[in-house]
Amino acid sequence: MALNSNGSLYMQHEWLIDVLADLKAFADAKGMGASAEALDDASLIVLAELNSLARADAAAAVGEHEGQTGSVTFLFEGRRLA
Score class of each variant (00 low, 15 high):
residue 1 M to D: 10
residue 2 A to V: 08
residue 2 A to M: 04
residue 3 L to W: 04
residue 3 L to N: 05
residue 4 N to P: 03
residue 5 S to P: 03
residue 5 S to L: 05
residue 6 N to G: 03
residue 7 G to W: 04
residue 7 G to F: 03
residue 7 G to K: 06
residue 8 S to N: 09
residue 8 S to H: 04
residue 8 S to K: 07
residue 9 L to W: 01
residue 11 M to N: 15
residue 11 M to S: 15
residue 11 M to P: 00
residue 12 Q to M: 11
residue 13 H to A: 03
residue 13 H to T: 07
residue 14 E to C: 05
residue 15 W to L: 07
residue 15 W to A: 13
residue 15 W to S: 13
residue 15 W to P: 01
residue 16 L to A: 13
residue 17 I to S: 05
residue 17 I to E: 04
residue 17 I to Y: 03
residue 18 D to Q: 15
residue 19 V to E: 08
residue 20 L to K: 01
residue 20 L to H: 01
residue 20 L to G: 01
residue 21 A to W: 00
residue 22 D to E: 13
residue 23 L to A: 07
residue 23 L to E: 05
residue 24 K to N: 03
residue 24 K to E: 10
residue 25 A to R: 02
residue 27 A to S: 14
residue 28 D to T: 13
residue 28 D to E: 15
residue 29 A to Q: 11
residue 29 A to S: 15
residue 29 A to Y: 04
residue 30 K to T: 13
residue 30 K to P: 01
residue 31 G to Q: 04
residue 31 G to C: 06
residue 32 M to Y: 10
residue 32 M to C: 06
residue 32 M to K: 09
residue 33 G to N: 12
residue 34 A to W: 02
residue 34 A to E: 13
residue 35 S to T: 14
residue 35 S to C: 10
residue 35 S to F: 06
residue 36 A to Q: 01
residue 36 A to W: 01
residue 37 E to T: 15
residue 38 A to N: 13
residue 38 A to C: 08
residue 39 L to V: 04
residue 42 A to K: 02
residue 44 L to E: 05
residue 45 I to F: 06
residue 46 V to N: 02
residue 46 V to Q: 03
residue 46 V to G: 03
residue 48 A to G: 13
residue 50 L to V: 14
residue 51 N to W: 01
residue 52 S to K: 13
residue 52 S to M: 09
residue 52 S to A: 14
residue 52 S to P: 00
residue 53 L to Y: 12
residue 53 L to D: 07
residue 54 A to M: 07
residue 55 R to H: 09
residue 55 R to N: 12
residue 56 A to S: 14
residue 56 A to Q: 15
residue 56 A to H: 11
residue 57 D to L: 05
residue 59 A to S: 11
residue 59 A to I: 09
residue 59 A to D: 12
residue 60 A to V: 08
residue 61 A to V: 03
residue 61 A to M: 04
residue 62 V to K: 14
residue 63 G to D: 08
residue 63 G to K: 09
residue 65 H to T: 10
residue 65 H to W: 03
residue 65 H to A: 05
residue 66 E to L: 11
residue 67 G to D: 12
residue 67 G to C: 12
residue 67 G to H: 12
residue 68 Q to A: 10
residue 68 Q to G: 08
residue 69 T to E: 07
residue 70 G to S: 14
residue 73 T to E: 13
residue 73 T to W: 08
residue 73 T to N: 08
residue 74 F to H: 06
residue 74 F to C: 00
residue 74 F to A: 13
residue 74 F to G: 05
residue 74 F to Q: 12
residue 74 F to R: 08
residue 74 F to Y: 07
residue 75 L to N: 08
residue 75 L to S: 07
residue 76 F to H: 08
residue 77 E to H: 10
residue 77 E to M: 09
residue 78 G to F: 01
residue 79 R to M: 15
residue 79 R to Q: 12
residue 79 R to T: 07
residue 80 R to D: 08
residue 81 L to Q: 15
residue 81 L to E: 15
residue 81 L to R: 12
residue 82 A to K: 11
residue 82 A to R: 11
